[in-house]
Nucleic acid binder design. Structure first.
Lengths: 224, 224
DNA sequence: ACCTGAACACCGTTCAAGT
DNA sequence: ACCTGAACACCGTTCAAGT
C-alpha cells in the first residue's frame, strides 16, 4: 500500500475516533493498535500525526474543554461574578459528565491544551474585572477547578459497590444504606454538587465583601 | 526453587514495596514484573497474594486513606462540626500530598477499600450527630471529597508548563505570568485550598443556620 | 500453600522500506 | 509526506509443574 494519494488519516479523524472509543469503552480501551485498527490503518501510522499516545489523549480531553460555555465571562455579558461563576461551573460539569472517561486526563491540569488554557484565562480575567485582587482570582480559578473536576472524577456514589454484604455494620456503623447509593448515584452526585457549589459561592461572596468594600453595582453578587 | 519453607512474600511486603515504587516513580512504574523483581521473585508469584494488579494498587491507596486523622469525629471529641470538618480536610489533604501519585487511584472512590470506607462512615456519622439531616450529611461527605481529592489530583499550578513561550498573550490575554505558576506551585495550591475550604465551610454554616434553628451549643459552629 | 518458567495475547514506539 | 511490516522491549495473566 504505502503512501496513498489522499491521506487516510488526519488529526481530526484520529481524535474523533479516539473520543468515541474512550466514551464507549474507557481510557484503557485506547491502544495505538486498537485505535489504528478502528481507523483502518496500521498502528505506527498514528505517529505521522501525533508524537505519541499521550498527545492523542490530550487532544481528546481538550475537545471536551472546548465545549465548556465561557460566554458568561465576556466583557459585555451582564452577569455578576457570582452568577457567572455558577453558570460556568454548571456548564463545565455538564461537559465533563457527558464524557466521564476523559476526566482523569483533564484533571491533570491544562498543560498545553489550548481549550483548557482558554478556560483558565477567561475565569481569571473575569474575576479580576469584577474586582478580585489577582492573587485571589488565581485561587478562585484553581479552587473551582478542584471542586468541579473532583465531582466529575470521583463520582461519590459510583464509588460504592452495589452489594449489600460489602458494608458490614460492625465496621461501618453509619453506612447501612451505602450500597443503595450505587442506585441513586446520579441524584446524590447532582445534589452534592449543587450543595457544594452554593456553599462555595456563598463563602466567596462573604470574602468578597471583606476584601473589597467599594464594589461596583455590576460586580456585586445578589444572593438568591 | 519452587515453594520455600518460609513464604517469600506477604500482602504487607508487596504493598510496602509497591507504595515505595509509586512514590518514587509513579503509577506507571508499577508493572507486575517490575514489582516482582523489586521483591526478588518472579512475576506470577504476586497472584498468590492478590487477585490482580488493581487489587494491589487499591491496597496501596487504602494505606494512604488509613493515615487520615479521624479523631475529630469521635463522639467524645468536643470540636463543633465546622472545626471537625476543617481539621479533617487539612489532615486528608496532607495525607494525599505526601503521596500524590496514589491520588488517581483514591479518586475513583472508596469502593471496597476498608480505610476509605471508614473515612466516609466517620464523616457521615459525625454530621448526623451534629444535627444535619442524613441526606445533607451524605452530600457533605461527597462534596468535601470532591474538593479535597480534586485539589490533590489536579494540582492547578503543576498543570501549567514552566515555559514562557507556551502561553501566547494573543491567545490568553490574562495568562501572562502563567508559566511562573510552575514555580510557586506549592503556594498557589495551598492558598487555593485554604481559600476554598473556608468558603465551603462558611457556606455550609450559612445553610446549617437555615436548615436547623434549634442547634445545640456543641453543634453550633463559631466563625473565626 | 507458594513459587517457577513457559506461554498467550497483548502493549508503545522506532525504523527502514515503499510510493 | 504518509503509509507499511518487522522488530524491540515491554505488558497482565493463566497454568502446569515442582516442592
Amino acid at each position: 500500500m504505502a503512501r496513498p494519494r489522499k491521506p487516510l488519516l488526519s488529526r481530526e479523524r484520529i481524535v474523533e475516533t479516539a473520543s468515541a472509543l474512550v466514551d464507549a469503552e474507557g481510557l484503557d480501551a485506547v491502544s495505538t493498535r486498537r485505535l489504528a485498527a478502528e481507523l483502518g490503518v496500521s498502528g505506527p501510522s498514528l505517529y505521522n500525526h501525533f508524537r505519541n499516545k499521550d498527545e492523542i489523549l490530550d487532544a481528546v480531553a481538550d475537545a471536551v474543554s472546548a465545549r465548556v460555555d465561557l460566554s458568561m465571562f465576556d466583557e459585555d455579558d451582564d452577569r455578576d461574578w457570582r452568577t457567572a461563576l455558577h453558570d460556568w461551573a454548571v456548564s463545565y460539569r455538564a461537559a465533563l459528565s457527558a464524557h466521564p472517561n476523559t476526566v482523569p486526563v483533564l484533571a491533570r491540569g491544562p498543560g498545553r491544551r489550548p481549550a483548557g488554557l482558554k478556560v483558565a484565562d477567561a475565569v481569571f480575567g473575569a474575576m479580576v474585572r469584577a474586582g478580585w485582587p489577582p492573587a485571589q482570582a488565581t485561587r478562585i480559578g484553581a479552587l473551582m477547578r478542584y471542586f468541579i473536576t473532583g465531582s466529575a472524577l470521583g463520582s461519590f456514589a459510583r464509588g460504592f459497590v452495589d452489594d449489600a454484604t460489602a458494608y458490614d455494620p460492625a465496621d461501618y456503623p453509619h453506612l447501612g444504606q451505602a450500597h443503595l447509593l450505587a442506585d441513586r448515584q446520579e441524584q446524590v452526585d447532582q445534589g452534592a454538587f449543587e450543595t457544594g457549589l452554593e456553599a462555595l459561592l456563598d463563602g466567596l461572596a462573604l470574602q468578597y465583601g471583606t476584601v473589597r468594600h467599594g464594589a461596583t453595582l455590576r460586580s456585586t453578587p445578589k444572593r438568591p
